[in-house]
């Protein structure tokens, strides 16, 4: 039989007492999700957010102050939240869904769970950044770009599109992140525009040319800064964020390749649930996300492109937004990601 020493009994007893204190004393603490404010406003809408607190906090706060309402936020992976919304159906406690990736909100809309947004909301965003049927709008844009080390490469050397990075002169100098969802979305857009054969050929040539695989955008950026690689395929705002932290001497710069699908705009987007019984408040929240103040926050803090009309991108974003293509596929067909993953595996990139 298992015997227990007196010390173990004491330890276990201590643990139980500690736990009891936790249970009795503080109950559980739910911190304010928005980020800072502790305004005890009246209970308001529930938001399912695929974007992390740091990315949306102040925008949520500003709505809470202005509307004198508390926003309840559930944070999780965008795809998991989409799946949760589908299972909840009409019983969902959520009023608003804020998606990090474009495919997820399209899937929720396809399941008939999103209500059509009022025209005055839709009108705030150019047509190419929203659902043709009006069930969701883009909030911010994240561009796929080429980042490079200014000490090792001059901008004039860079090719007009990532297709040029298969040139022998870039051998072993390029970093990418085949496993990240943003890279996979980019490849999906390539497939839609150039077909599977051309895309696969590019992937294979990249692998043959010694493209270095990193786990994510951040590690690519840091490797470029350290001079381990000279260029990398990443989302633009990672570099902009580092520049605003490290100062103008930061050695990494971004380059928006002008040719073809050189760069690509990926949207974060928001929709209101059909099942919501607080639709007017939910619409007000969406309007608030598209307000100049929130859009200004998104662009100045995360360096993403504001999508609402009439809001200027952060000065560091020196490529005009309409120069960056939004692939048709980035609106709905990003559900094609499965095929992309298979293609990337066949090409040896994954």
């Amino acid at each position: 039989m298992i015997s227990v020493t007196p010390q173990q009994k004491r330890l276990f007893a201590a643990l139980v007492v500690f736990a009891a204190l936790v249970l009795a004393g503080c109950g559980f603490s739910t911190e304010d999700n928005g980020g800072g404010s502790n305004d005890p406003g009246t209970e308001g809408i529930t938001l399912y957010s695929g974007r992390i607190p740091a990315a949306i906090g102040p925008a949520v706060d500003s709505y809470e102050k202005q509307a004198d309402r508390d926003v309840q936020v559930r944070f999780a992976e965008t795809a998991d939240l989409a799946a949760t919304l589908v299972e909840e159906g009409d019983a969902s406690p959520a009023d608003v869904f804020f998606a990090q990736e474009p495919g997820a909100i399209a899937a929720v809309a396809e399941a008939g769970l999103l209500t059509k947004l009022p025209q005055n909301i839709l009108d705030q965003v150019p047509a190419r950044y929203r659902d043709p049927e009006g069930r969701w709008v883009g909030v911010t844009g994240r561009a796929r770009v080429i980042a490079y080390n200014r000490d090792a490469v001059s901008e004039s050397e860079l090719p007009p599109s990532p297709f040029g990075l298969t040139d022998p002169k870039w051998k072993d100098r390029v970093g990418w992140s085949p496993a990240s969802s943003s890279m996979q979305e980019y490849v999906t857009a390539l497939r839609a525009k150039y077909g599977d054969d051309r895309t696969k050929q590019w992937l294979e040539e990249m692998v043959d040319n010694g493209a270095v695989a990193f786990p994510d955008n951040v590690t690519i950026r840091d490797a470029i800064a350290k001079g381990e690689i000279d260029v990398g395929l990443i989302n633009h705002y990672y570099v902009a964020q580092a520049i605003s932290e490290e100062g103008p001497d930061y050695p990494v710069a971004v380059y928006f390749p002008p040719g073809g699908l050189g760069s690509l705009m990926l949207l974060t987007s928001v929709g209101v649930l059909e099942s919501s019984d607080r639709k007017p408040e939910a619409f007000a929240f969406v309007r608030s996300l598209l307000s100049p103040k929130s859009q200004q926050f998104f662009t100045s803090s995360s360096k993403e492109y504001p999508l609402a009309k009439g809001v200027a991108p952060d000065p560091s974003l020196n490529v005009p937004i309409d120069k960056i293509p939004v692939s048709d596929s980035s609106l709905v067909d990003l559900k094609e990601l499965q095929g992309t993953i298979e293609l990337m595996k066949e090409a040896g990139a994954l």
């Binding site: 899937a107 496993a179 094609e336 990601l337």
Partner: peptide
């Protein structure tokens, strides 16, 4: 670690094709 196990495949079904 990018190992395409059965569980990873289940997540892919949600994340890329949203196919419950």
């Amino acid at each position: 670690l990018r190992f395409q196990s059965f569980t990873a495949e289940i997540y892919v079904a949600y994340q890329s094709s949203f196919d419950r």
